[in-house]
Design a protein around this nucleic acid. Structure first.
Lengths: 243, 243
DNA sequence: AAGTGGTCTAGACCACTCT
DNA sequence: GAGTGGTCTAGACCACTTG
């Protein structure tokens, strides 16, 4: 039974318009992360299009990373980034695959500094939560992070003892704040560690470090995190396929 | 008129088998880089499959970077990597978009050292051409490269004056040696510059450097180049999208 | 105007997953 | 067995490029 319809913008294909429509419904929360969308057949009937056209729309959403298709089960809204995506940039000895333990060194609320406000898409001076976080493998500190989170959204993290927090932030963002990180952009650079930073990492002052500046986005494309991670440059290792 | 046929391996789809068949014909040189394949309609008829199935096969080859589809013109075998793919990793002041001038510092023929032989997929001790190459922007040296090329293939580069060479190697590989670099894998790390390397780059000894270890492959998937590039770590800059 | 790839349809059948 | 996504077909029409 047809219950909706899409009208492609001029120059836009019908499956692209369908993908936009479905994306809007996902962002609106109609299908929460982890749940299954309606079946292709059903969606195609709903919009009054051929099955193949609806399939292209869903394939497009899958390419964009918004949904995941599983043969025989359904099409699912992705849960967001899991694991420890920062670790793809580093190799620390024989701890591969291990998730570093996490310790919050500092937490405070302040007006967003100008660059942070710009990264998060906030107005100047809006309140943000700032975290300093040290990640360690065994007894060895490996990554020092400064994390900025927009504040009405992450209010749940401004209270309670951070000692009880999980080693992985993104699953915690989802559980406690309802924020699902779907996508991130990492800018890799290089710098010398300032004395204070080096001390925390157990490195000599001025030691060469890799710096990863991350901006993370939710399903709707809103920037929900700005992060700066620092680690020993000699542990940095990344592989890129060029085509 | 049907002139060929494919039989998918068990568990393989027909379009995947078609893509394999077409890839083999491309690698064999039936359609040289830059030329257009036969039209979809014609290919579909040749193999006795539906148009949509052949389209999926060609789309797959396009995803793999083997061909490029151009609406209204045809499907073309890709010419290979162009531009200056190494520069995606660096930002040197206000020279963005500029191609660094290239100077060959050394060129010799020798038996492949073990790691190079392994990277190139050669037997131990097979002959290779070794190049040392300095790339500069204006008067400033920016990248120092050590390049290893398998020798029967690149014999044309073992003779003649390298001073006349182009600033870009890959187009020259294509013109002089018939080698089209289709794909590369870059491994990024950081290290301290050895005294000799630092001197050439105009940096103090021990200065932190970004090191890019590249393996380049031709259309057939053969490794045709092993390269190690070194540049000032402070000029290193790379952006990755995580999803 | 002719030839190319891109979109869309309508339907059949297959492969996988769960109950 | 019922329901899901994956493959394949056969054909119509559209959009783009070139002579």
């Amino acid at each position: 039974m047809q219950i909706a319809t899409v009208t492609p913008l001029p120059g836009q294909s019908r499956y692209a318009a369908l993908a936009d429509a479905l994306r809007a419904r996902i962002v609106a929360g109609e299908w929460p992360p982890g749940s299954a969308l309606a079946a292709e057949q059903s969606l195609a009937a709903d919009y009054g299009v051929a099955l193949g056209t609806m399939r292209r729309a869903l394939d497009l959403l899958a390419e964009l990373g918004l949904v995941e298709r599983v043969h025989g089960r359904g099409t699912f809204v992705r849960l967001g980034l899991g694991g420890a995506p920062m670790l793809r940039f580093f190799r620390f000895g024989h701890h591969d695959g291990e998730v570093p333990a996490s310790r919050i060194l500092a937490r405070d609320t302040r007006a967003a500094p100008e660059p942070v406000a710009r990264a998060l898409g906030l107005g100047p001076g809006e309140p943000v939560l700032r975290l300093e976080r040290l990640r360690s493998l065994g007894a060895q500190p490996v990554l020092l992070e400064e994390i900025w989170l927009p504040l009405p959204l992450f209010a749940a993290l401004a209270e309670g003892d951070p000692a009880g927090w999980d080693d992985l932030l993104y699953p915690m963002f989802a559980q406690r704040c309802g924020v699902h990180v779907a996508r991130a952009i990492d800018e890799i650079g290089f710098c010398a560690a300032a004395a204070a930073q080096a001390a925390v990492l157990g490195l000599p002052a001025g030691h060469p470090c890799a710096r990863v500046q991350r901006r993370a986005f939710d399903l709707g494309g809103r920037c929900v995190e700005s992060r700066r991670s620092l680690g020993d440059a000699h542990a940095f290792h990344y592989t890129v396929a060029i085509t």
